[in-house]
Design a protein around this nucleic acid. Structure first.
Lengths: 102, 102
DNA sequence: TGCGAATATGTCATGTCTGACATATACTAA
DNA sequence: TTAGTATATGTCAGACATGACATATTCGCA
């Protein structure tokens, strides 16, 4: 894992050490987690850039504040589908999303 | 929508005309569908490149042939999560996925 | 410090996705 | 054509994600 990516995961609340190490994740599983974390962070960026609270965004998405918080935290109960639809609702384009996960 | 993207959608079985037109999809919804179609096509490429049948891939994924077929067809009942995990299992990297959806 | 706003965490009923199976259709070679 | 293989389509019970709610924690500011 690149150092920059690890920094992001740590920032997102993942303990130090590689994500893969943490609980015997296979490389694919680790990559999947990394993508989810990256999308969660991206969502937070788009939300704050648009000066919205989680509650306000939730209303726009017809969701709830708690779910938005979980999205941004890449909670295991949040699907990538929901993250993507939320980002698109905030105005993110395919290429923005591609850049976020690359 | 770019011509190249439309060609892909048509190739994937979507009727001519823009995806958005087809059934009153909002731009965000259309973009989401396009991403799913792109991921489905990418999955097929990775599978055929690895000379696997849908059944063989299904076994590796602990899934079923029918679901693999639906993934490649971007069937509405298939989540992006499943598409991504499948691609990663085939050896695709984050940047490959980013390129596919960009 | 305290207070109010924002965010985080836990739980649950309801709705959606999943693998599995059956079966239909498409493709290839004889 | 036919048979054999691959892929597509339809359905369903069980598994998982969802919005909503309650509540806890963190943050910013006076």
């Amino acid at each position: 894992m690149k150092t920059s990516k690890r920094a992001k995961l740590v920032a997102a609340g993942w303990a130090a050490g590689t994500t893969a190490d943490f609980l015997g994740l296979s490389p694919e599983e680790a990559a999947f987690v990394e993508m989810r974390v990256a999308l969660g962070q991206s969502l937070r960026q788009w939300r704050t850039r648009n000066k919205l609270t989680q509650g306000e965004l939730a209303k726009r998405l017809r969701s709830s504040q708690s779910r938005v918080a979980k999205m941004e935290a890449a909670d295991p109960t949040v699907s990538v589908d929901l993250l993507l639809r939320s980002l698109l609702s905030l105005g993110a384009k395919s290429k923005d999303i591609a850049r976020a996960i690359a």
